[in-house]
């Protein structure tokens, strides 16, 4: 079984701020780390490998420094690493990111199973997995909260829905996105760090991908454009209400209604 796990390097904290005067993203002292949701995808792949054998490849798109998250995956027990790195990938939105990853997976594959985390902590769109599956023309399921096992090249898993848990059977090749907490992720091992220190990471640029047309990548391949970024408004002011009980309850009712706390009644 060949498994691929998509991972991403993200800022070490979500406490990034925008300077209200200059509009510049403040990044003083912001370290990078592996997207925490990806640890669950990695652990899922490692557990399946323990049970059914095979090899695991991690793939990430980013600057050369993003090799750090591939090294970390090696320390957890992953076999191969692929870095998609090219200035021409810069400015990619969900569509261009998914497309680039799909090209990278085709160049490095084929894979039976592709596992993605639920979302990232920086963009947090939670939509790259589904777009990636579309570009690879394979079925996908999201919100996997439990894996029952693999039989006859078919994965059986539980999907976390708002009101129910659905059990699905999905044949290879396929893509799944896993929920936080599906397994407890293992810690990177020092022993493996030493063992994998010299392991090669395969670096792919646009010229190594099946589709070499730059118009499909980066800013050019992105239908969405960020017009501007700005700090959120702080709406949490403090106020005191006084008066007779009837007025107070009426006012509280209107507040709850207009702030959508009563919508489940309708």
């Amino acid at each position: 079984m060949k498994t691929a796990v998509c991972i991403k390097q993200v800022p070490g904290t979500s406490q990034v701020e925008i300077d209200p005067v200059t509009g510049v993203l403040k990044r003083d002292g912001v370290e990078s780390k592996m997207n925490p949701y990806d640890l669950y995808a990695l652990e899922t792949a490692l557990r399946l490998k323990q049970q059914y054998g095979g090899e695991i490849t991690v793939i990430t798109m980013g600057p050369p420094q993003a090799q750090a998250v591939i090294r970390e995956a090696f320390m957890m027990g992953v076999d191969h690493g692929v870095l998609l790195s090219d200035r021409r990938f810069g400015g990619a939105d969900v569509l261009a990111t998914s497309y680039t990853l799909s090209q990278g997976l085709q160049a490095a594959g084929p894979f039976d199973l592709i596992i993605c985390g639920k979302q990232t902590t920086d963009g947090d769109t939670a939509q790259v997995g589904a777009e990636l599956a579309e570009f690879l023309k394979i079925p996908h399921v999201t919100n996997v909260c439990k894996v029952h096992g693999i039989e006859a090249e078919t994965l059986e898993a539980d999907l976390d829905q708002p009101l129910s848990i659905a059990t699905a059977k999905i044949p290879f090749p396929c893509l799944i996105t896993v929920e936080k907490g599906i397994f407890e992720p293992r810690l990177p091992s020092y022993k493996r760090k030493k063992e994998t220190a010299d392991r090669q990471i395969r670096v792919l640029t646009l010229d190594d991908l099946p589709d070499k047309d730059p118009i499909h990548y980066g800013l050019n391949g992105s239908p969405t454009q960020v017009k501007r970024i700005f700090p959120p408004e702080n709406s949490n002011t403090r106020e005191m209400w006084e008066g007779n009980a009837d007025d107070l309850s009426s006012r509280l009712f209107r507040f709850l209604d207009s702030h959508k706390y009563l919508q489940q009644l309708r």
Partner: peptide, 23 residues
Amino acid sequence: GTPAGRSLAPRAAARFRTGLTAD
């Protein structure tokens, strides 16, 4: 932006090669 919607919208957006803005 439910589990089903967050699975369906990106899949369809990729099929039409168009933009999707989440949440």
